[in-house]
C-alpha cells in the first residue's frame, strides 16, 4: 500500500527533461556574467532575488509539497536577520559562515517549536496559528527595545568576511555586486540542489502523498505529523538562511519583517510563480522583485497593481506563471499535432 501511493505521486516529479537542464545552464551563465555586463543596480536587484530564492523554495516545501499554507514565515526571515546583526554588533563576529550556521540552527529550533504546535492543524487554522506566532514575535521585537532596538531596528556597521576573507576597503556597491553576489549565488545553487534532492527523494514523495491525501497517507503507514514537522523545520532553516543572506544587503533589520504583510509577500511570490512547480516560486520571486522595482518608481499604488495581477492570475491562471506557461505549451503542441494530422 505504501509503495503504491509513492508510485502514484512520483509521476509528478518535476523537470527531468534535457531542455530544462539546458535552460538552467544558460541562466546560470547569465547570472555568472551579469556583474560585468549588466548595470550595477540590475545586478543589485539580482542579488536581492538570489537572497529570496532560499526563502521562497523553503516556504514552498510547506505549501507546494506538504499542503500547508504558512502566513508567518517572516518570523524565520527575521530570526536569520537578527541573528546575523546581533552576532556582528554584540560579539564582533565577521565570519558569514558562522552567521549562516547559527541562523540555520536557531531557525531550526524555532521551526521545531512552532511546528510542533502548528502541525496539529491544517488549512486556515494552520495559517492563522503561524500568523499568530509571527505577530507575537513582532510584538516581542517592538517591546524589548534594549535587546532588539524596537521599531528603530538594528543596523550593521561592518562587512562580513566571506570564507575568511575581508573586503572592508571595497566600495560597498562593488562589494555587494562583485563579491557578495557570487557568494550568494553559490549558496543559492547549493540550496537549490539540496531542495531539488529533497523534493525528488523518497522523503519528498512522502510529503506529496501527505499533501494529496493525508488520510490515505496515514493509512499507508506514513506518520503524517512527523513528515509535516520535518517539512516545517527544513522550511524554517531555508528561510532563516535567506534572512541571514538578505540582511547583508539591507544592512539594517526592523520588526516589520515579522509583520503579516511581509509574510504575505512571500505567499504572493509563490502564488505568482505557481506553487505546484519546483521553479514556480523562484520565477514568482524574480517577477515580483523586478516588477516591484519598476512599478514602485512610477506609482505609490504599486501594491494595487500587483494585487490586481494576483487576482487575475488566481482567476484565470490558477497554476501561476509556470502553470500558465505549461498550459500554453500544451496548447501549442496540441495545435501543432492537429495541424500535422490534418
Amino acid at each position: 500500500m505504501k509503495i503504491d501511493i509513492i508510485k502514484e505521486v512520483s509521476t509528478i516529479i518535476p523537470f527531468k527533461n534535457t531542455r530544462f537542464t539546458s535552460i538552467l545552464i544558460i541562466l546560470f551563465i547569465i547570472a555568472l556574467i551579469a556583474p560585468y555586463v549588466a548595470p550595477p543596480f540590475l545586478t543589485y536587484i539580482l542579488l536581492t532575488f538570489f537572497c529570496y530564492v532560499p526563502i521562497v523554495i523553503g516556504f514552498n516545501l510547506l505549501l507546494g509539497y506538504t499542503g500547508l499554507l504558512s502566513f508567518g514565515h517572516g518570523l524565520f526571515v527575521a530570526i536569520g536577520m537578527y541573528t546575523s546583526v546581533y552576532l556582528m554588533r554584540n560579539y564582533g563576529v565577521t565570519s558569514i559562515e558562522i552567521m549562516l550556521i547559527l541562523a540555520a540552527t536557531l531557525s531550526a529550533l524555532a521551526g521545531f517549536g512552532v511546528g510542533l504546535l502548528c502541525i496539529r492543524y491544517v488549512r486556515i487554522f494552520f495559517a492563522m496559528l503561524t500568523l499568530a506566532f509571527s505577530m507575537v514575535f513582532y510584538s516581542f521585537l517592538l517591546k524589548f527595545y534594549w535587546l532588539t532596538g524596537g521599531d528603530e531596528g538594528l543596523g550593521i556597521y561592518t562587512r562580513p568576511a566571506l570564507l575568511g576573507m575581508k573586503f572592508d576597503t571595497l566600495y560597498i556597491m562593488d562589494f555587494l555586486t562583485k563579491v557578495y553576489y557570487y557568494y550568494v549565488l553559490a549558496i543559492m545553487v547549493i540550496l537549490l540542489i539540496f531542495m531539488y534532492r529533497i523534493t525528488t527523494s523518497h522523503f519528498g514523495i512522502c510529503l506529496r502523498a501527505v499533501k494529496e491525501n493525508p488520510r490515505k497517507a496515514d493509512e499507508s503507514g506514513l506518520n503524517v505529523k512527523k513528515y509535516r514537522l520535518y517539512a516545517f523545520v527544513i522550511s524554517a532553516i531555508y528561510t532563516g538562511i535567506g534572512g541571514a543572506l538578505l540582511v547583508q544587503v539591507t544592512r539594517h533589520v526592523v520588526p516589520a519583517i515579522t509583520y503579516w504583510t511581509y509574510s504575505g509577500e512571500i505567499v504572493f511570490m509563490t502564488l505568482l510563480g505557481g506553487f505546484n512547480y519546483f521553479t514556480g516560486p523562484i520565477i514568482g520571486a524574480f517577477v515580483y522583485i523586478v516588477l516591484r522595482d519598476l512599478i514602485m518608481s512610477l506609482t505609490i499604488y504599486w501594491r494595487v497593481i500587483l494585487g490586481v495581477a494576483l487576482l487575475l492570475i488566481v482567476i484565470f491562471v490558477p497554476g501561476g506563471l509556470m502553470g500558465g506557461a505549461k498550459s500554453l505549451s500544451k496548447l501549442i503542441i496540441k495545435k501543432r499535432e492537429s495541424y500535422e494530422f490534418s
Partner: peptide, 13 residues
Amino acid sequence: VEKSVERFKKLTV
C-alpha cells in the same frame, strides 16, 4: 526600511 534602502541605491546608482 528594506525597500527604502533599495530606493536609495536605485536613485544613487
